[in-house]
Amino acid sequence: MSAVAASAEIHPLSVVEDGAVIGDNVRIGPFCHVGAKVVLGEGTVLISHAVVTGKTVLGRNCRIFPNAVIGGEPQSIHHNGEETTLTVGDNCTMREGVTMNCGTVEGGGKTVVGNNNLFLANSHVAHDCQLGNGIILSNNVMLAGHVKIDDRAILGGGSAVHQFTRIGRQAFIGGLSACSYDVIPYGMLNGNPGLLGGLNVVGMTRAGMDRATIHRVRKLFKALFDEEGAIREKATAAREEFADCKEAMEILDFIAAESDRALSSPFRGKA
């Protein structure tokens, strides 16, 4: 039997399968389908024609717009019907046509989305992606499998992210860009192939970063990308000079971390 809170409102033209857990003040509009292994957190709203399926947990106060499919099977030739999961945090909005897939066994079995994220129409989150908080995916953004995106990153409309790519905190990916390589925190990438054009200074300012810190991060960017030499070697050499700047060290730690992808730069992929 489903566990449906007394305060939940379910339209009679929707289907909630036995086993689903429906929290307090959830509202499910007409022509929705909620699967047997779904958990809908307090205050979440399915407006109409929305599907939440698979072993999927949605947090509090999420909003699912028409024609979104949340928790579908992974689009992977290696998936053989194993039970994997999708977990979405609080205060996330999935606009019309958004799709999010559960994980694969090979990728750890789970797709994870944090809090306060906005997914605009027809954006896609593939299997095994790991997303932080405060992220915006604009219309038609496509995330391939195993992508990792840190807090407050913004992806412009129609951009595409290659599988296993990492996007650092407060990075900005321009509209229609092809993001094939890791993007450092605060980096700004544009074009196809995507080139690292500088820092997301507007986003840094809006986040409350003071001018002195921005100048320090700019100095690091120039040292890494404007001078000759291997980026990772230069990053190692820069650690002592920038040890007093938390934001600069965040970039250096990102570069030092293991990754399946190379680093985006102003030159990589340029003809």
Rank of each mutant, 00 (worst) to 15 (best):
S2L: 07
S2Q: 09
V15G: 00
V16C: 12
G19V: 06
I22N: 14
N25S: 14
V34C: 14
V38P: 07
L40A: 02
G41S: 06
E42Y: 10
T44M: 13
I47C: 05
I47Q: 05
H49V: 01
V52T: 12
T56L: 08
V57Y: 11
L58M: 08
R60G: 00
N61Q: 05
P66T: 09
A68H: 04
I70V: 01
E73W: 07
H78G: 11
N80E: 09
T93I: 15
M94R: 03
R95T: 03
E96L: 05
E96V: 10
G97Y: 02
G97N: 09
G97E: 05
G97T: 06
V98Y: 11
N116F: 13
N116H: 15
A121D: 13
A121W: 13
S123A: 15
H124L: 02
L131F: 09
G132T: 06
N133Q: 10
N133T: 14
N139G: 08
M142L: 09
L143F: 15
A144W: 08
V147C: 12
D151C: 02
G156F: 04
G157Q: 05
G158H: 02
S159R: 13
F164C: 04
G168I: 04
Q170G: 14
A171L: 04
F172Q: 02
G175P: 12
S180A: 14
M188T: 08
P193V: 12
A207T: 10
A207I: 05
R211H: 10
A212S: 15
F221L: 08
A223Y: 13
E233F: 06
A235L: 04
A237V: 01
A237F: 00
E240S: 01
K246D: 13
F254N: 03
P266K: 13
G269H: 07
